[in-house]
Amino acid sequence: MSNTPKEQEKSNLSFEENYIDENIIADKSSRTKEFIKKFMKRKTAVAGLAVIVILVIIAIIGEYIAPYDPAAYDYDNMLAGPSAAHWFGTDHYGRDIFSRILAGTRLTLGVSLSSVIVGAALGTVLGLLAGYYGGVIEMLVMRSSDVLFSFPDILLAIAIVAILGPGIINVFIAVMVFTVPSFARIMRSSTLAVKSSLYVEVAQSLGCKDGRLLFVHIFPGTIQSLIVNFTMRIGSAIMAASSLSFLGFGANVTDPEWGAMLSQSRSYLNVAPHMVYLPGLVIFITVLAFNLFGDGLRDTLDPKIK
């Protein structure tokens, strides 16, 4: 909701101008060491990273460490509040909410991560091509981005899901689609900047082929802005996907997707508020972790704004 593409675009533009040149010259391994050293100083970012690592582990093994079968009904134990037996309480089927959150981590993170990865890849390629070749390609890519940018992101996602129908795959597509233009724009402007830099001009004059030039010379020069935007997008992707599920346009309500769990809980707000508090808290912590991590990355990569 809040991480609009525009915001990130503007923020990234500011540091690209500074970075690209020194990036080219600097020695790789010492840079990495220095980067890690700098990053580790940012405690909140490290905390964010730690949470992300834990989440990834849970995404992999979550369903095996869940204390209960996340899909098992217990009709004698419906809507029970948190207790020693059920840490996060049970839902309207008597299912253990804690187990469902663990088991749903893979689904929730998977949808957001994969949609951002695919969207970023598409956007990057389109942005590179648009920036490098200009002309018709640039026009097409940029005008399509304009169309997509003409809708606030959740509205765009709702419209897409309305067309494709609800379901997790369609949420993936919707989030992916609104990820593409932001990457396309950033990559285009980064590419334009790198393209005019001295070493690309040299490579070009030496008769370097377009493909090689694009991916060996230009792409690495844009990678920092890519990484930062990528991390920041994940937070908003999780938010968008869970908002869609919350509105009933997302995951199947039987799936333990966090937004869908929260959406179901609305009906029980009066009788079982733990169903609202806890899955929401998990979404919040996850988004926060990615945002803190992304902030840390950006600050580390960009000494200007500190």
């Binding site: 809040s2 937070g235 938010m239 809980s265 803190l292």
Partner: peptide, 21 residues
């Protein structure tokens, strides 16, 4: 950044639960 990360629907529902209900 906390404000940026808190899902609106969650804040809203909690607000209703606490301040209204």
């Amino acid at each position: 950044i906390t404000g940026l990360s808190a899902p609106g629907f969650w804040l809203g529902l909690m607000g209703i639960e606490i301040f209204a209900v």
